[in-house]
Each structure stands twice: as structure tokens, then as C-alpha cells.
Simulated assay, not measured.
Amino acid sequence: MKRQGGFTLIELVVVIVILGILAVTAAPKFMNLQNDARKASLEGLKGSIQGAAGIVYGKAAIKGIESTAADTDVKVGDITTNYGYPTANTAGIVNAVSGLETDSQDWVGATTTDKADYVVTFKSLVKAAAPTAADITATKCYVEYKQATSVSAAATTKVVADGNSCK
């Protein structure tokens, strides 16, 4: 009689155990996809804000108003500026970035109490109905736009995404 080839029960169990160990070690890497996707979205928003601020500054330079402070109500189109860059509010950076206010299902933003920063995050991360800048920064997953403070201090944009805070 010919002996049939195949796997024994022990060999199958060992293979299943090895696959289980691999799955347990690899699963957390794949579970972090939402966090990575949100961080990438924030980086994209940062780029949009920087691009819009650069365009506004270029238009302000053409008009010769890039060295004028916001207290004189300087505008480039419908965008208020401070030293040529959009101000950190709805009349400034929100008007400059196309879609920031119209995509209200995705983004929520607010000006900080000192009126020099504008912060934006995902609407789903903030629990308050009318979130303040403090509510947004408490998520530790946001984009922060700082308006220009002088002729030599340009506007800056940064992403704050600490650890797994963007889940």
C-alpha cells in the first residue's frame, strides 16, 4: 500500500499558531490608518494655508501694502491683511483658503483669544457645538496659522498632531 502524503494535525496547528502571532504583531500597524490619514489631511491643509498666504502676500506686494499693519484695515480683495499676510480670522485666512469655510462638514476653526492665531481641526474631534480655539487645541490634532507680527516676521503655519491624538 502506498502511503498518502499530507500534513499532520500538529503541523497544521503550528502553522495556525505562527499565523496568529504574525497577525497580532501586524494588526496594530494597520489599525493606525485613521490616525495617519488625519495627519496627512492636516499636512494637506497646512500646504493650502501656506499657499493661500503666499498668494495674498504676493498680491499685497504688488499693491505696495506688504509693510502695513492690520489696524489700518488693509485688504487684498475681500481678505484683510497684516503686513501683507492674511489676518488670523474669518475675514483673513478663512477667506483666503478656498473651501475652508464651505467644507463645514469636515473642518472647524476658531481665532485664539489674542487674535493672532487661527486653529483648524476635524469637526468630528470636537464635541462642542460652537467650539472655541481652546476646544480645538485640546484635541492635540490641528493646524495653527499665526499671522505676521511685523515686516520681518512672516506668517507661519504648523501641524500639531501628538501621538495618536488624531483618532
Results as ranks from 00 to 15, higher is better:
3 R>E: 12
3 R>W: 11
4 Q>P: 08
5 G>E: 14
8 T>K: 05
10 I>N: 03
10 I>Q: 02
12 L>V: 14
14 V>Y: 03
15 V>G: 11
16 I>R: 04
17 V>E: 07
20 G>V: 06
20 G>P: 10
21 I>G: 11
21 I>A: 14
21 I>S: 10
22 L>H: 09
23 A>W: 11
27 A>E: 07
28 P>C: 08
30 F>W: 13
30 F>H: 08
32 N>C: 08
34 Q>H: 12
36 D>Y: 11
39 K>W: 10
39 K>L: 09
41 S>P: 01
41 S>Y: 03
42 L>K: 01
42 L>W: 02
42 L>G: 02
45 L>Y: 00
45 L>P: 00
46 K>H: 10
47 G>R: 02
47 G>T: 11
48 S>W: 05
48 S>P: 04
52 A>G: 04
53 A>Q: 03
54 G>V: 00
54 G>M: 00
54 G>R: 00
55 I>T: 13
59 K>M: 12
60 A>C: 07
61 A>Y: 12
62 I>Q: 13
63 K>E: 15
63 K>Y: 11
63 K>D: 14
63 K>W: 07
63 K>V: 07
64 G>L: 07
64 G>D: 07
66 E>I: 00
67 S>R: 13
68 T>F: 12
68 T>N: 13
68 T>A: 14
69 A>R: 10
69 A>M: 06
70 A>H: 11
71 D>E: 14
71 D>M: 13
72 T>I: 09
73 D>V: 10
78 D>Y: 00
78 D>S: 12
78 D>M: 00
80 T>I: 09
80 T>H: 06
81 T>V: 14
86 P>D: 10
87 T>Q: 13
87 T>F: 05
88 A>M: 06
89 N>C: 07
89 N>V: 07
90 T>R: 12
92 G>T: 04
92 G>C: 06
93 I>P: 05
97 V>W: 06
97 V>L: 08
97 V>F: 08
101 E>K: 14
102 T>C: 00
102 T>E: 08
103 D>T: 08
103 D>L: 11
104 S>F: 12
109 G>P: 01
109 G>Y: 08
111 T>N: 09
112 T>H: 03
112 T>Q: 03
112 T>P: 01
113 T>D: 15
115 K>A: 15
116 A>C: 01
116 A>I: 13
116 A>Y: 11
118 Y>E: 05
118 Y>H: 07
119 V>P: 04
119 V>E: 05
120 V>G: 03
121 T>V: 04
121 T>H: 07
121 T>M: 06
122 F>I: 09
123 K>R: 15
123 K>C: 02
124 S>N: 13
125 L>V: 08
126 V>W: 03
126 V>F: 04
128 A>V: 08
128 A>T: 11
128 A>Y: 06
129 A>R: 07
131 P>L: 01
132 T>D: 02
134 A>F: 01
134 A>M: 02
134 A>I: 02
135 D>I: 02
138 A>P: 00
139 T>R: 05
141 C>E: 02
142 Y>L: 01
142 Y>I: 03
143 V>M: 06
145 Y>G: 01
145 Y>H: 04
146 K>D: 10
146 K>M: 08
146 K>I: 04
149 T>C: 10
149 T>A: 15
151 V>D: 11
151 V>H: 03
153 A>D: 15
153 A>F: 09
154 A>L: 10
156 T>I: 09
158 K>N: 10
159 V>N: 10
160 V>M: 05
160 V>E: 10
160 V>R: 05
160 V>G: 05
162 D>V: 15
167 K>G: 14
